Simulated scan of single mutants.
Amino acid sequence: MRVFFDRELDATATFWRIFRQDGIALGFTSHDRDLVFAGLRHRAAPGMVPAAIRMTSDLSEDSAGVDGALSHDSIKGSELSAGLFDRAAIEIGIVDWETLEHHTIYSGALGRIEDDSRGFSAELKSAKQVLEQDIVPRTSPTCRAFFCGPGCGLSANKFTDRVALTALDLDLNRVQLNNVASANHVDGKLRFLNGPQTGKPFGILSVDANWLTLDRPIDASVPIGTPAELIEGCDHTLTTCASRFSNAVNFRGEPFLPGNDLLARYGQSSG
């Protein structure tokens, strides 16, 4: 295995790779020319550079971040706002630019991304973040199960429709679909099956007449007629679970458990 920085002069550079959830892989390097290794071209003069990385030997989460310019060809503001980089896997490491031997020193996923129209910054979440997740569910007045997911017991096919895009309203970030518009789709999901945002789930915030308002910006280049999957929503309350779905037996919540407000109440005299 290659040992880096074991000599006075070392031909090393930093590299980092991003693996988006739509299947796109991007490679970057701090070297002054492109480097091709591990089956991927790592571009020089990149639109994204790693910030400080803190590695720990214990179980506490490592921390890192990246900064970038929205003007670079590979990092577009429209793609960031469309969520194409959300939860993308990332690797950061060292490469010998002469022999192309390389070693990954950090792996994780992109977390919160902030941009100011000229540049952006993103936090990185290391693989240790899974150790901070609760291993047992906390109590909640609403159902903790994903709608039509594990624990819910309902079939997603029963509440999913194949639809097509019929109109776009970019100013209000809403869409119109063929013969589908129901209050039951609030809190549901829309997923395009073609076009620039293929596979990205959009949450449905509200339904107004035949328009569905989405929770993330929609790409203006999505063509009319694009096929999509539309799944109904659920507000995760016991009332909805029982009356609309007749599924109260699978409700994963504690709607009648007293809350913290009970501890703050003052005693009152009955006289």
Rank of each mutant, 00 (worst) to 15 (best):
96 D>H: 06
77 G>N: 09
133 Q>G: 12
71 S>Q: 12
24 I>H: 15
259 G>C: 00
152 C>P: 00
56 T>E: 10
138 R>H: 08
108 G>N: 01
115 D>M: 13
265 R>E: 13
217 P>Q: 09
193 L>S: 08
204 I>W: 04
190 L>M: 06
269 S>E: 10
185 H>A: 14
135 I>A: 15
55 M>F: 11
202 F>W: 00
101 E>T: 01
84 L>S: 09
46 P>L: 09
245 F>S: 01
120 F>I: 01
4 F>M: 04
80 L>Q: 00
240 T>K: 07
227 P>N: 10
18 I>G: 04
221 S>D: 12
121 S>T: 11
8 E>I: 11
87 R>I: 12
52 A>N: 13
9 L>P: 05
153 G>H: 02
77 G>H: 08
148 C>Y: 04
233 G>W: 08
62 D>M: 04
27 G>K: 02
260 N>S: 11
13 A>E: 09
121 S>M: 07
199 G>M: 03
213 T>L: 08
201 P>N: 03
142 T>C: 07
85 F>A: 04
69 A>K: 14
37 F>D: 09
86 D>H: 15
13 A>T: 09
200 K>L: 15
86 D>R: 14
160 T>N: 05
174 R>T: 09
61 E>D: 12
2 R>C: 02
230 L>V: 01
240 T>L: 02
262 L>P: 05
261 D>W: 11
204 I>D: 00
29 T>L: 01
141 P>H: 06
98 E>N: 15
71 S>M: 12
24 I>G: 07
235 D>Q: 08
154 L>C: 07
143 C>M: 04
238 L>N: 02
108 G>E: 02
258 P>V: 03
106 Y>P: 01
24 I>R: 14
211 W>G: 02
249 V>C: 10
254 E>V: 00
123 E>G: 15
242 A>D: 15
158 K>Y: 10
187 D>V: 11
242 A>H: 11
126 S>L: 02
256 F>W: 08
239 T>R: 12
198 T>Y: 09
2 R>D: 09
162 R>L: 13
249 V>P: 04
137 P>L: 11
50 P>F: 05
142 T>S: 07
199 G>V: 01
129 Q>S: 12
45 A>W: 10
139 T>K: 11
130 V>D: 07
238 L>I: 08
70 L>M: 04
151 G>A: 04
223 P>N: 03
93 G>K: 03
146 F>L: 14
237 T>W: 00
18 I>D: 03
232 E>R: 12
26 L>V: 07
269 S>Q: 11
55 M>G: 03
187 D>P: 00
147 F>T: 02
169 D>F: 00
258 P>K: 05
158 K>R: 13
62 D>C: 08
95 V>Q: 00
10 D>R: 00
41 R>H: 02
108 G>F: 00
93 G>S: 05
161 D>R: 15
195 G>S: 04
6 D>K: 10
69 A>E: 14
64 A>H: 01
48 M>G: 06
142 T>P: 03
41 R>V: 13
32 D>V: 14
214 L>G: 04
49 V>D: 05
169 D>W: 00
162 R>A: 13
250 N>H: 06
14 T>N: 10
268 Q>F: 12
